[in-house]
Computed example of a mutant assay.
Amino acid sequence: MHVDVEVEAVIPFPCEEVAAYAGDPTNAPEWYANIQSVRWRTPPPTALGSKMDFETRFLGRRLAYTYEVVDLEPGRRLVMRTADGPFPMETTCTWEQVAGGTLMRLRNRGAPSGFAKVAAPVMAKAMKSAMGKDLDRLAQRLANR
């Protein structure tokens, strides 16, 4: 079973500001609840081919994986992909200026294997909940800067 989860929210800040902050993986531990650390393998800033190591905690398990930026339209779209670990995944962030701020979409999709494959339905539900809260945290973080 594949997992494909998408959430969206209007973040009440200009698109350039939201995309610059959310599109910088260095900031991910500040607004993604499950991401504990990010370490760059290639020099920042984010560019096509950039690689970084992520350490996360999800459903009580520690996961470590390397993401690579595979698609980038600065200020509009960022796609990162990993083939590491029990849950190879692709994460897509998009930003669009709308009335009231920036419509941000966050999508995670992948094909889990092993234990993760069996737990895919539970994982998808937990991911959707966590991702919605992450977008709320992002808005709060931007408001407090």
Rank of each mutant, 00 (worst) to 15 (best):
M89F: 12
N108T: 12
E73Y: 01
S113G: 14
G114S: 14
K128Q: 12
R41Q: 14
Y32F: 06
A22Y: 01
N27F: 05
Q36M: 06
T26M: 11
G49F: 03
R137I: 06
E55C: 06
K117F: 14
F54G: 00
A120T: 13
V7M: 10
R41S: 11
D53P: 02
E6C: 15
Y67P: 00
T82F: 04
D134K: 09
M89H: 09
P88S: 03
G49Y: 05
D134C: 09
C15H: 12
V122F: 15
V70D: 01
W31H: 07
G23Q: 04
P86W: 02
R76Q: 07
E96V: 08
R62M: 01
K128R: 13
P25C: 02
V18R: 02
E30S: 11
E8H: 08
V70E: 08
R41L: 15
R61P: 04
D84N: 06
P112A: 08
P25A: 01
F115D: 14
C15Q: 15
F13M: 12
S129T: 13
Q97V: 05
A139W: 11
E17C: 01
G100D: 05
T91M: 05
T46V: 12
P45N: 01
L142C: 09
S129H: 07
T92A: 04
A126E: 09
K125F: 12
